[in-house]
Amino acid sequence: MKTIGDQQLLKRINRSVLLRLLRAQPGLSRARLASESGLTKSTVSGLVRELIEDRWLTESGAAVADGLGRPSTPLSINDRVRALIGVEVGVETMRVVCVSLLGEVLHADTRPLHGTAPAAACALAAAMCAQAWDEIASRGLEVTGIGVGVPGAVDDATGIVLFAPNLGWRRLDLLPQLIDAFAAEGLPRVPVQLQNEADVAALGEYEFCDGEGEDPLIFVDCDVGVGAGIVLNDRLFTGAQGMAGEIGHSILQADGPLCSCGRRGCAEAFFGSRMMGQGPGDVRRAGEMLGVLLQNLWMTFDPRAIVVGGSTCVRHPEFLQSARETVHRYADAAGMPPPVVRGARHGLLAPAIGAAALALHEYLRPMHPNTVERRERASPQLLMR
């Protein structure tokens, strides 16, 4: 029988429900948590006590009226104990950030990535994470998990990088190399998660927001490559083999410019940073083609928000404006309200911050079919309490 295991899983699920409610609505009381979650008051009371003891939650000393008949003590996520590390392995740069459980950036570092050898990339990531860890420890915080985003398709179950064309990686089992590099730098063992950089950027926008997250949400990353991350029904939508969102080589014009992949008319051939012209007319035209791509994503997923980030947006603000105008023209022609189209909240740090959000996202969703397998593979002997 699996009674004990089932009870432990049920407790984890219920704990995650309360944590997610308080992330979306800080200040809820125990009574309101019971009402919002559907759990009994006694269950909520016991779980809250455990979460306070484990330093996931904190409570205000002042009781307030909660509208349910008697004064209650507001609860909130304790962001003064735990931190998360996020790593973006870019094509030309490496970025590492530390964030609080609520998404506040506590540390950020960017360094050039010289060469594409996996061992060198892992070593640089580990050295930067070690420095970040020291910075967080000096503040009296402990790191709960590390997330890593890479510019390529990642198998959602195994964590294998299926292909990252701009780095020349194919079927690369990167996660063990990262864990070994972290150990070589003397980092304590914590869960390590690996995912596509656009996917994690979408998670960052979704998890670290005010109130309820926008769902569905699409993040489009416009850098050397072009990719998309999709949050659908409170989870990343990665497809059957981790290939969902590989939009850089979707065809926007049948007889368009030659792409690095050998085909013509790919999205990257119009607005990948290595291909895009520098003149005002070139940037505006590239933005219009991005708008065509965003219109197609809109019609495919009907998102509440489309977020666009990456170095191209930072260097050319008019690029995103042109894309937004194009989407609005399509919407006006169809007589339909367009989705929100906006820039990334944290600019170039979006994938790294999203990578930090990845570990928290996985922890708060214990029933995800791949969560246990991926967490055990990432760190076999240590799960987050």
Rank of each mutant, 00 (worst) to 15 (best):
C266Q: 07
R377D: 11
A198G: 06
M276D: 00
M275I: 00
N296Q: 14
V81P: 03
V226R: 11
R139K: 12
T40W: 05
G335P: 06
D173G: 09
A125G: 09
E197F: 03
V292Q: 13
D173I: 09
G291L: 07
P337G: 09
I136N: 02
G140R: 06
L106H: 04
C261A: 13
V200L: 05
F237G: 03
V231H: 05
H316F: 01
E325A: 09
V161C: 05
V340F: 07
L101H: 05
D199L: 01
I13K: 06
Y363H: 14
A267W: 03
L141H: 10
L47C: 01
I52C: 10
V97Y: 04
T93A: 01
V327K: 07
L47I: 06
V48T: 01
A305W: 10
S29E: 05
V48Q: 01
F271I: 00
A228H: 12
G354W: 10
V96P: 04
A244E: 09
F182D: 13
L75P: 08
N166C: 03
G279L: 00
M275C: 08
A132L: 10
E362A: 14
V308P: 04
L349K: 02
V154Y: 07
T238W: 02
G248V: 04
T110H: 00
L358Y: 12
F301Y: 15
L141Q: 11
L33C: 10
I218E: 08
A121E: 06
G38L: 02
L172V: 12
R315M: 00
H368W: 09
Y330V: 09
F301G: 04
E142Y: 11
V17C: 02
G27I: 07
I353D: 03
L187Q: 11
V96H: 04
